[in-house]
């Protein structure tokens, strides 16, 4: 399998009156073709910013992004724009991500029109849109409806159809189901997985919902305050979580079986400010196993098992 997307030391800082906000801080990731990388973390940990930075929707402050070996950071604005036929995004909120002035036909046609596809071939365009609507499960009679006439699930299907219209290989899914009802969530997730199977799509799936990420991902990356704290294949991460933060996250999943329920350990403290963060482990202030050396610089990802990376030097001791 070849690597489709790779980032090296990707950074995105925002300037604020109080200093630099480190939203994404030195992320290295690799996604193989046809695979799904799940990115999880709590609100404000920089996972959405990471997704936008990878697509260069927000210009990264530093680092490198490679798409099939091409360096995206070396491209100018025009070249980046041309990459949008290869990389697409599905947005979180299907209510605000669709232009209310456009009909479904226009919404799905828009990416193709922008990229001069089907130029002068109206029939081909109509056929393609019909196909796309069929693929994502939108009834043909809705072609000329407007987004406000539809429910959240159907709107999100438009979002999916629109992203697929330019036949991209890579799609960033930014919490595509978190604004939907649970029953609709399952439909959209199954749709995304079917599409991946049929078209060999590669996903970067951003979510805060661990059950969703468990359902869809091959590999999972856990983020905390702009840094990757743990990265591992799905099974490995769920069976052998090694970073104290990942452990806390997994423990927070409600367990319906009362006999299996262990003692609930709640994380103490608040997320510290991501503005000009102190060196050392960013989780140190909330970590139950914190040591003095955690506050010093040099907490890097280490491979503790094949393709299982943890940013905690004491993980083997903790898990004892």
């Amino acid at each position: 399998m070849s690597v489709l997307i790779e980032t090296q030391d990707l950074q995105k800082y925002f300037k604020t009156p109080r200093g630099w906000l480190h939203a994404v801080d030195g992320i290295n990731l690799k996604i193989d073709e046809g695979q799904t990388l799940g990115v999880v973390g709590e609100s404000g940990c920089g996972k959405s910013t990471l997704g936008r930075a990878v697509l260069r929707l927000q210009d990264p402050t530093g680092g490198k992004i490679f798409y099939e070996g091409q360096d995206l950071m070396a491209m100018n604005k025009k070249e980046v724009r041309s990459m949008c036929t290869k990389m697409q995004m599905i947005f979180q909120d299907p209510y605000s991500s669709l232009n209310p002035r456009m009909s479904i036909w226009q919404l799905i046609a828009e990416p193709m029109l922008i990229n001069h596809m089907y130029k002068g071939d109206k029939e081909g365009l109509n056929k393609k849109i019909e196909e796309l609507m069929d693929t994502v499960g939108l009834a043909k009679r809705l072609t000329h409806a407007y987004p406000h006439e539809l429910d959240g699930g159907r709107r999100q299907r438009i979002g999916v159809a629109r992203a697929l219209s330019v036949d991209p290989k890579f799609i960033v899914c930014d919490e595509p189901v978190s604004a939907l009802d649970v029953s609709i969530q399952a439909q959209i997730l199954n749709l995304l997985m079917d599409l991946q199977r049929d078209r060999g799509l590669t996903y970067m799936f951003i979510t805060h919902d661990l059950s969703v990420v468990k359902h869809i991902s091959n590999e999972i990356m856990v983020m905390y305050m702009g840094k990757c704290v743990e990265r591992a294949p799905k099974r490995e991460l769920f069976s052998n979580p090694s970073h104290p933060y990942t452990q806390a996250l997994l423990r927070a999943i409600p367990e319906p079986n009362i006999d299996k329920r262990g003692e609930l350990q709640v994380l103490k403290g608040e997320v510290t400010s991501p503005i000009n963060p102190k060196p050392g482990c960013r989780f140190a202030h909330r970590c139950p196993y914190v040591r003095e050396s955690c506050l010093a610089d040099g907490v890097e990802l280490q491979e503790i098992a094949p393709s299982h990376f943890v940013a905690c030097p004491y993980s083997s001791e903790i898990n004892g």
Binding site: L55, C84, M89, F91, E110, I114, N115
Partner: peptide
């Protein structure tokens, strides 16, 4: 942002 993402 979606429009920018489509290359508009």
């Amino acid at each position: 942002e979606a429009a920018q993402c489509h290359g508009a």
